[in-house]
Amino acid sequence: MRTARNIGYILGLPVLLVLVWWLSTLGSVNFFVPKPADLVETFGEVWFGDRFFSDVLPSLGRLVVGVAVAILIGVVGGVLIGSVRWLRALLEPTLEFFRAIPPPVLVPVLMLLMGITDSMKVMVIISGCVWPVLLNTIEGVRAVDPVLSDSAHTYGISGWARVRYLVLPSASPQIMAGVRQSLSLGLILMVISEMFASSSGLGFTIVQFQRSFAIPEMWSGIVVLGLLGVAMSFIFQWAERNILRWYHGQKEVENAA
């Protein structure tokens, strides 16, 4: 009974919305709004063919490489900058400025510096995604519990062991918050870099459909991007639950007390 009600809660509104969409387009011939059945059909035709290999996979590849490199640079740089006090004071204002630059303006700049290449698109993703991770890591490293830090010092834990067992775990909630921001930024930058300068990829294909007024195809592209965003968010939540299990447990105990 309880599960039935939960399923009702989860599916109720989406089903209702699709129903409204279906009914309102039943008799209409509106050029801009496709019918649900048409959209599903187009979706299959357009995206489960050659295009999957020629556009979707390369885009995804660039996204994964870009975000992974950005996280790596962000965490390593953040641990370094966060643990050295004068370095942090020296770099913080400059870094804040770089974070404040809206990442999409990097597309024309990098296009100029690197030409229209795959590595340019990866570079756009890296240079946009690195800031949230970097600055959050610095914040997290700075906020390491001083008692834990002193204890580690007393036990002679230093160098790599200190980073591995003290700094990284205690900064990980902040780091994950940064990663979450980077992921959604990365998806945006992937699409923009392809819309702006490309002859393949998801962003390019969708703009191409729009320019040739292939409306159902365009909608199906929007759906692909949406599904991608949702999938990434689920993967992230799963990863976060596993990585931060100890942290959420600790929070629960604290809240209960």
Binding site: V191, I192, I206, F209, L225, L228, G229, V230
Partner: peptide
């Protein structure tokens, strides 16, 4: 999580 840039063509 739907990226708003997906709405650009629209």
């Amino acid at each position: 999580p739907i990226p708003s840039v997906a709405l650009i063509p629209l």
